[in-house]
Design a protein around this nucleic acid. Sequence first.
DNA 1: ATCAATTGCGTTATGCTATAACGTGTGCGA
DNA 2: TCGCACACGTTATAGCATAACGCAATTGAT
Lengths: 132, 132
Amino acid sequence: MTTPMLTKNQTLVFDVLTKAEGPLSAYTILDKLRDNGFRAPLQVYRALDKLLEYGVVHRLESINSFVACAHPHENCHSHGLVAFAICESCGQVTEFHDHEVDHRLMGWLKSQKFKAEKSTIEIRGHCASCAA
Amino acid sequence: MTTPMLTKNQTLVFDVLTKAEGPLSAYTILDKLRDNGFRAPLQVYRALDKLLEYGVVHRLESINSFVACAHPHENCHSHGLVAFAICESCGQVTEFHDHEVDHRLMGWLKSQKFKAEKSTIEIRGHCASCAA
DNA sequence: ATCAATTGCGTTATGCTATAACGTGTGCGA
DNA sequence: TCGCACACGTTATAGCATAACGCAATTGAT
């Protein structure tokens, strides 16, 4: 799927996420966009829904937050499963992919005739800097 | 870690989850325990915290729900990573484990000197019965 | 025995996350 | 020009989770 032109709201939300150091909650995004005319959570959630659909933003289920995809150009949907390492000290998130993990999970799912649609792989812990 | 004796509230919550067909939200559990004297969400959350700590209950981050561990006797913490296939039609959840997936993920994390503490692997889609 | 620390419990209040339901305007093809 | 799809704005509400207080029971060291 190719990413269509973003609307004004989508662009605003995407820019906030891109400039952010780490993941942001929907309400944090809302606060950052008050000066741009955002007044209600739905304005953020609707933009996020589209950005998630386009694959340029990821949702981190375990911390109810959103992060820009680490691959600015290629569409992330083509990478197979996406995994995240989330540091609980500094909040930094590292996105990574492992084809072998994909392969094993997909194999298991196929053996069960389970039709996968969305996946979540999130590891929480402490990054190298914070583990000291 | 060996599971200590459960308290009254922990037992009630655990029994509800064990008897349930699928995952339950904390508030659903609360409703089911009103007749047993439960009045407030915290009573449920506190019991769940302990049950999660003991490894006899899992939290499904992507649907804000909780499910009893599929291994009634052995402690689930000894199984390495736990993965779930969640059917979005019927709500059924299948817990599974794959040593190779563990190995690959742990390998990557180790290469980054990332100290993993909690993990979430959840695949949402449609089970064999519902995919028809 | 008693004091302190820990743990579980109950209650009230609050905060955070997400969506329902309504209406408006705009662009575009039949 | 009618109907449709889509983005948007607003208000209200639903759903998920925890803070902060106090009380009771247990344990274990002095």
